[in-house]
Amino acid sequence: MTAPLLEVRDLKVYFESERGRAQIVDGVSFSVEQGQALGLAGESGCGKTTTALAVMRLLGQGGQIAGGQILFNGEDVVQFDAERLRRFRWREVAIVFQGALNALNPVQRISNQIMEPMMWHEGLSAREAGLRAQELFELVGIERKRLTQYPHEFSGGMRQRAMIAMALACRPKLLIGDEPTTALDVMVQAQILDKLNQLRRELNLAMILITHDLALLRETCDRVAIMYAGKIAEYGRSDAVFANPQHPYTVKLLGASPDIHGDPEEARRVLTSTIPGHPPDLLDPPPGCRFHPRCELAFAPCHVTEPALITRGPDHVASCHLLENDTHG
C-alpha cells in the first residue's frame, strides 16, 4: 500500500467564544489516498466543514488547531508558514463551497476569476491562463464562449461547474467539496458528480466530499466517516459501513434517510423511531460518549467513559461501548 496523500491524525479544533471554549473537532483521524474519495457525513454542527477548513488552514477568527497533525504527502500542514501555505492552497488542495453564487464575484467576468489563481499561483501569462481556462471549461462541460460572461448569466448548475473549474485551475491533488451539489436539482447534481468522478479517474484526483446525504456518499465515496458532535462515530469502507452499520448513530441516521428504492412501509416504521433530542452544546459536551443522551441503547459506561474506536472488520471502525464485549464474545 502506498502512503496516503492526506493523513489527519487526532485533529482538534477549538473555537474561543465569550462563553468559553467549544471543541468543534475533537480528535478526528482519517486518511485519503490518491484517486480516492472520502465522504464526511453528519448533521449540521457535527464539525465536518470545520474539519475540511482546518485541512486548508482556513479557520476563521477564534478558531485554532489545538492539536494533532495534518500530513499532506508526509508534510505537516499545521506547521506551514504563510509562504508555504500560499503554495499549498489551490496548487495542492482546493475547495468548492456550497453557495456558488456567493463565492463568485458578480462584477467580474468568469474568465478573469478563473485566470486569477493561475496567474497568481503559477505565474502564467494572461494568454497561457486564458488557454487553460478554455481547457478547464471544456473539462467541466461548459461551452468555451461562455467564459466571458458574468456569474448572473449562469444557471446554478453552471456556476457550480465554474467553481469546480476554478478549483482545478492549478491542478491540485486533493479537491474538497463542501456540499457542492446540495442546492442543485437532482439531474444537475448527477451531471456534476459524474463529472467529478470522471475527473477523479482521469487526473487521479483525491476528493473529500462533505454532505448530509448518505445515499450520495454511498454512490460516490470509497470511504466514509460519520461524524457526531466533533468526533468520528464510525469510519470505514463505504460498502462495509452501509451494509453493516455498527454505531447506533449511523443506524439511526440511515433510518432517517428516505430511500428511493427502499420499501416505504419499512421506511415509515423506521421513521417513527427517529433520533430524539438535539446534538449537544459543544461548549459543554456531555461526559462519556457524546451520543449517549440521545442513544436508546446507552448503558452505564456510556455516561462515564468516552468510547474508543473499535475495529469491526478490515478497514471499518466504530466508537461505541456496546461493541467492546461483542468483539470478545
Binding site: V186, D213, R218
Partner: peptide
C-alpha cells in the same frame, strides 16, 4: 424514468441503468 434513475440511493442501481440527461431545463 431519468429522474428516478439518478437519485442517489443506499441500494444503488447499476451504472448502465442510470439515464443521465444532457443539458438543463
Amino acid at each position: 424514468k431519468a429522474l428516478v434513475s439518478v437519485i442517489p440511493s443506499l441500494h444503488p442501481v447499476s451504472p448502465e441503468q442510470r439515464l443521465l440527461l444532457q443539458g438543463e431545463i
